[in-house]
Simulated scan of single mutants.
Amino acid sequence: MDESADTRQRLSHRIDQKQQALRSYIGRERPRRNKLSNISVVGSALAAMLTAGPAVGGTGFTEAIRGIFSLGDDSVVWRFLCLAAVILSVAAALATNFANSHALAEKVSAAETVNAQLEGLQVTLNFGHIAIDEALKLYQQYVAQVPFVDEVPVR
Score class of each variant (00 low, 15 high):
Ala52Trp: 06
Gly57Val: 00
Gln20Ser: 10
Ala105Ile: 05
Gln19Cys: 10
Gln140Tyr: 07
Gly67Asp: 15
Ala116Tyr: 06
Ser24Pro: 00
Leu50Met: 14
Tyr142Cys: 04
Ile132Thr: 04
Phe148Ile: 04
Leu71Met: 15
Ala144His: 12
Leu11Ala: 11
Glu29Pro: 01
Arg14Trp: 08
Asn34Leu: 14
Pro153Ile: 01
Ala135His: 07
Asn115Leu: 12
Ser37Phe: 10
Gly58Ala: 06
Gln20Lys: 12
Arg23Met: 10
Thr62Gln: 07
Ser24Asn: 13
Gln140Asn: 14
Gln141Val: 11
Asp74Met: 13
Ala64Glu: 01
Ala21Lys: 00
Gln122Gly: 08
Arg28Phe: 05
Ser75Trp: 10
Ala47Glu: 11
Val108Ile: 01
Ser89Tyr: 00
Lys35Gly: 02
Ala99Thr: 04
Leu138Gly: 12
Gln140Met: 11
Asn34Trp: 01
Gln117Thr: 03
Ala5Ser: 13
Leu94Trp: 05
Ser70Ile: 05
His129Leu: 14
Glu112Gly: 07
Ala103Val: 09
Phe61Pro: 02
His13Gly: 13
Gly27Tyr: 05
Ala111Ser: 12
Leu94Gln: 09
Cys82Asn: 14
Ser4Trp: 07
His102Ser: 15
Arg32Leu: 11
Tyr142Pro: 03
Leu118Asp: 02
Ala92Cys: 04
Gln140Ser: 12
Arg28His: 11
Ala21Cys: 03
Leu94Glu: 10
Trp78Leu: 13
Ala85Leu: 11
Gln117Asp: 13
Arg8Ala: 11
Leu136Trp: 04
Leu88Ile: 03
Ala111Leu: 07
Arg79His: 11
Gly120Leu: 02
Ala95Leu: 01
Asn115Val: 03
Thr59Pro: 00
Gly128Arg: 09
Tyr139Leu: 05
Ile87His: 02
Gly128Phe: 09
Val149Lys: 03
Ser89Glu: 02
Lys18Asp: 05
Arg66Met: 13
Ala45Glu: 14
Ala91Ser: 06
Gly43Trp: 06
Glu29Thr: 05
Val123Gly: 05
Val90Gln: 00
Val154His: 08
Ser75Pro: 00
Ile65Tyr: 12
Asp73Met: 08
Glu134Asp: 15
Val146Leu: 11
Ile26Leu: 09
Gln117Ser: 15
Met49Gly: 13
Tyr142Met: 14
Ala103Tyr: 13
Ser37Lys: 15
Val77Asp: 00
Leu50Asn: 06
Gln19Phe: 13
Gln9His: 08
Glu29Gln: 12
Pro153Phe: 00
Ala131Val: 04
Tyr139Pro: 06
Leu50Asp: 08
Pro31Asp: 05
Ser75Tyr: 03
Ser89Pro: 02
Gly128Val: 12
His129Glu: 12
Ile87Gln: 06
Glu151Leu: 13
Glu63His: 12
Val77Glu: 01
